[in-house]
Write a protein that binds this DNA or RNA. Structure first.
Length: 204
DNA sequence: AGGACGATTAACT
DNA sequence: GTTAATCGTCCTC
């Protein structure tokens, strides 16, 4: 199998559309917040130059190389945390970035974590916003999403992808921008606005 | 040891 | 539409 074909049928691409409509439950500091996922992006491993796992394991990405079903949280832009579902097994690093969702439980706690937010639909509209309103960050990196006793859990993941899934290019990346590896629920108001990533700066 | 660059957001004009 | 904020990570000397 060619590298490209492996990526085209990789674990992140298979899982990503199935996560739409699933629920991410967070119970931290006595606060329960539940988000219904509406937008995700697939990041494969060695075959995907946009993936954090592209150049092999590092301290930051070690969770991506571990067992599937865990949360991979990373810090970016010096101020934001984003969260992924790890889905590769046997040495294959892959993950699905959780880009947006609808807060369906615990809106009060979500507002408390996002005081600058103006509209309810914006509480988890964007990857860093979603992580913030669920309280995800360094302390939740590596959390087991499938254990009933875990403070962060993934629930109601269907066997097959739901209806109404739209597909398009990933957001905010500067390489492999042509791959249509972003999935969202078409027409859902909590899906983030499309904004192309800036290209890698050219050396003159 | 140094520097470029983010899987972004909020606040501007 | 543009831009500042802000710092860990990783690549290149």
């Amino acid at each position: 199998m060619t590298p490209d074909r492996a990526a085209l049928s990789g674990p992140a691409l298979r899982l990503a559309p199935r996560l739409l409509g699933a629920r991410l439950v967070s119970e931290l500091a006595g606060q329960r917040v539940v988000v219904r996922l509406t937008e995700v992006e697939a990041y494969e491993g060695a075959d995907d130059p946009a993936s954090h796992a592209f150049r092999g394991p590092t301290g930051r990405t070690s969770v991506m190389f571990g067992p599937p079903g865990h949360l991979y949280c990373y810090f970016t832009y010096g101020m934001h945390w984003c969260a992924n579902v790890v889905c590769g097994s046997d040495g294959v690093a892959a993950a699905v970035l959780l880009r947006a969702g609808e807060v369906v439980e615990g809106a009060e706690a979500a507002w408390a974590r996002r005081p600058a937010c103006r509209a309810e639909r914006d509480l988890a509209r964007g990857p860093a916003r979603l992580a913030t309103c669920l309280g995800l960050g360094a302390a939740t990196n590596g959390a087991d999403l499938c254990s009933p006793s875990s403070p962060v859990r993934l629930e109601s993941v269907p066997r097959r992808r739901p209806r109404g899934v739209a597909v398009g290019p990933r957001i905010g990346i500067s390489v492999a921008t042509e791959r249509p590896w972003r999935f969202w629920l078409d027409g859902d108001p909590t899906v983030s606005a499309y904004k192309p990533g800036r290209p890698t700066r050219q050396t003159l």
